[in-house]
């Protein structure tokens, strides 16, 4: 059996761990709130943009290379969004599992399947297995900004427009709530515009609208904006999910530590009482012997 001192030390170290996990939980909660704020701020912009694109494409019959799907998809670029740091439960594991499964299932069918990693975890995993990415981005959670997303989006658009890939897909954790994230795989390019909500007759959107410079040029601008925004949205959601996942992971860790401390304290007290009893018996029997 472990000595009293050993148990004491284990209790202390568990307490330290508990303090750290508690602090990390609080930090994640604060960061999560900020990330959620980002998502809500973006919504009006996204909604307005989507509405206008749907309206224009429906009334003006405009097509654009970014919107037209290729006949056969042979070359795919998979963008994988993970975090830079661990300690966030299944956040990264789920994404990596999904991406790896996608690779095993689809690479025999495709001519080319390349990866683009955002976040260190995903990059580490695949680099270890000898899979190189065409590009990597780190430090997403530090300064998630529209500028950063725009930079990434422009690179992706160039890869698509120069004909290297027929389709660009994105795997990320969609933010549902602080405790649940869903692995989502989206087709980023070609852009799919929803036409469902649009009713050409009933809309107040006039067909005699003035376009400056031209409907085509405007659609091109809007599609690029829309694409930048989708990348920004995915990044924001992923960051929010990361903090949410870390928060619940740390909450669990804190609870486990608490349970462990309780158990250890019980063992400690039992051992202490046993020791006292033994000592008492020894003293009594010693005193008896002297008589």
């Amino acid at each position: 059996m472990a000595s009293l001192k050993d148990i004491r030390m284990r209790i202390d170290s568990t307490k330290n761990t508990q303090q750290i996990t508690k602090a990390m939980k609080l930090v994640s909660a604060a960061k999560l709130r900020r990330a959620q704020h980002n998502i809500t701020n973006m919504r009006p912009y996204a909604v307005t943009l989507k509405k206008v694109i749907a309206n224009i494409t429906a009334t003006q019959k405009v097509t654009h290379p970014l919107m037209t799907a290729k006949d056969s998809v042979k070359r795919v670029l998979l963008v994988v969004l993970t975090s830079d740091r661990g300690l966030c439960g299944g956040f990264n594991t789920n994404i990596i599992k999904f991406a790896d499964k996608y690779r095993l299932e689809n690479s025999p069918k495709l001519e080319k399947l390349d990866f683009f990693f955002i976040g260190k975890r995903g990059d580490d995993f695949f680099t270890k297995r000898g899979i190189k990415s065409i590009e990597t981005y780190f430090k997403l959670d530090k300064d998630i900004s529209y500028g950063l997303a725009k930079g990434v989006a422009e690179k992706l658009i160039n890869h698509y427009l120069d004909g290297s890939y027929d389709e660009i897909r994105l795997v990320y954790n969609e933010f549902q709530s602080a405790i649940s994230q869903v692995v989502t795989c989206e087709t980023l390019l070609p852009i799919q515009v929803e036409k469902t909500s649009f009713d050409a007759e009933g809309s107040q959107f006039s067909k005699d609208i003035i376009f400056d410079p031209s409907p085509e040029a405007i659609v091109e601008e809007l599609l690029k904006k829309h694409f930048n925004l989708s990348v920004y949205k995915a990044m924001s959601e992923s960051v929010a999910s990361e903090h949410g996942a870390r928060m619940s992971a740390m909450e669990n860790a804190t609870n486990n530590a608490k349970e462990m401390i309780n158990k250890l304290t019980l063992t400690y007290n039992k051992a202490r009482q046993e020791k006292i009893t033994t000592e008492l018996t020894e003293i009594v029997s010693g005193a008896e012997a002297i008589k």
Partner: peptide
């Protein structure tokens, strides 16, 4: 520059 007053015709511009 475009000056917009209430009642302007519908317009979309970059």
């Amino acid at each position: 520059e475009v000056d917009i007053l209430p009642g302007h015709v519908p317009m979309i511009a970059n």
